[in-house]
């Protein structure tokens, strides 16, 4: 459906994208993962024809973007990082404007727009000025705009940024539904978001291709040791000592403390026997375990293992 080959974008001497090649199958939900400044938005802006590539081609359903921009743009619904909303317009009027702008020709315009409004749940604000809406609603109005005209391809640039957890779940569900009969490219720098909705993930960093796989395989490939967070109460030094002396536990760090409870984070390859021992060791020393949870595998970990360049990643972390 979408073929991207040898895409390069240079700003002066700096490469924003360097020889990026990948393709997206019809009906696939592709996750586009990378830290800020990796070139995700640049790639999306080139696919949608907002900016031109320095070299390389983008073909959507057989049409090349620089040769047939109008044909390509007709097929794509785009939600940029900042939703392109006219703040002085009422939601309904805005969607009507997008409908006209995209030269959509549906039998019943009102019904079409109403379906979209119901899908992204903005019915209660459809008569309000966009400028008066909250960030979450604006994001949804932007998504609604991208959906006008039932485009075959949806390109969503960080669609859940700035939303509260409830809204994130709602938007994810909408994207899942949409992905059933559409081709979707979704960018994010949050791994869990990508795993929740995408069939396949492409990771880029500094404008270059890093890896491509299904979310499950990617986590396996990364092969990080499991990280666990323990919250214990009592003697900090004693607890640390017990952890360090347990077989299979490594890299123990105390990440935070409040009162006399401490959060320890460590990597583990404990066998069941070790776990039992750890439990009784804590019990003997009267150190209750208040909480225990698996630490989520972060994008930084993935980059660490995929790029194998620790310094580079730490530099990026400050941007995330």
């Amino acid at each position: 459906m979408i073929t991207i080959s040898n895409l390069t974008k240079k700003y002066g001497d700096k490469y924003a994208l360097n020889d990026l090649t990948f393709d997206v199958q019809e009906g696939e939900v592709l996750g586009f993962l990378g830290p800020n400044g990796a070139g995700k938005s640049t790639t999306m802006n080139i696919i949608t024809g907002y900016i031109a590539a320095t070299s390389g081609t983008v073909t959507v359903d057989g049409y090349e973007i620089s040769e047939n921009p109008i044909e390509v743009k007709k097929m794509i619904g785009y939600l940029p990082e900042i939703p392109p909303l006219y703040l002085d317009m009422v939601v309904w009027d805005y969607l009507e404007f997008v409908y006209e702008l995209k030269k959509v020709n549906k039998e019943d315009k009102n019904e079409h727009l109403q379906t979209i409004i119901d899908m992204v749940k903005i019915d209660d604000v459809k008569k309000r000025r966009i400028g008066n809406l909250s960030k979450g609603y604006r994001q949804r109005v932007g998504l609604a705009g991208a959906l006008v005209g039932d485009p075959k391809v949806l390109i969503l640039d960080e669609p859940t940024v700035g939303l509260d957890p409830k809204q994130i779940i709602e938007i994810r569900n909408v994207i899942k539904t949409l992905g059933k009969d559409r081709t979707v490219i979704l960018s994010s720098h949050i791994l869990s978001e990508i795993s929740a909705v995408c069939d396949r993930v492409i990771i880029i960093n500094k404008g270059e291709f890093v890896a491509e796989d299904t979310p499950e395989n990617l986590s396996k490939k990364v092969g990080c040791k499991k990280k666990i967070i323990f919250t214990v109460s009592g003697d900090r030094e004693k607890a640390e000592e017990i952890l360090k002396n347990t077989h299979g536990v490594s890299n123990v760090i105390c990440v935070s403390s409040s009162g006399n409870s401490y959060d320890f984070e460590f990597e583990t390859e404990m066998a069941d026997e070790d776990k039992r021992k750890l439990f009784f060791d804590f019990a003997e020393n009267e150190i209750p375990i208040l909480m225990q949870k698996e630490s989520e595998q972060s994008l930084e970990d993935i980059f660490l293992s995929l790029t194998g360049n620790k310094e580079e990643v730490q530099e990026d972390e400050s941007n995330i």
């Binding site: 802006n45 109008i70 743009k73 794509i76 940029p80 392109p84 703040l87 997008v98 702008l101 030269k103």
Partner: peptide, 14 residues
């Protein structure tokens, strides 16, 4: 400034 040009320039309008 408001990035609405992204909507106009990615629509099927020259």
């Amino acid at each position: 400034k408001l990035k609405t040009d992204q909507l106009l320039l990615t629509s099927p309008v020259s």
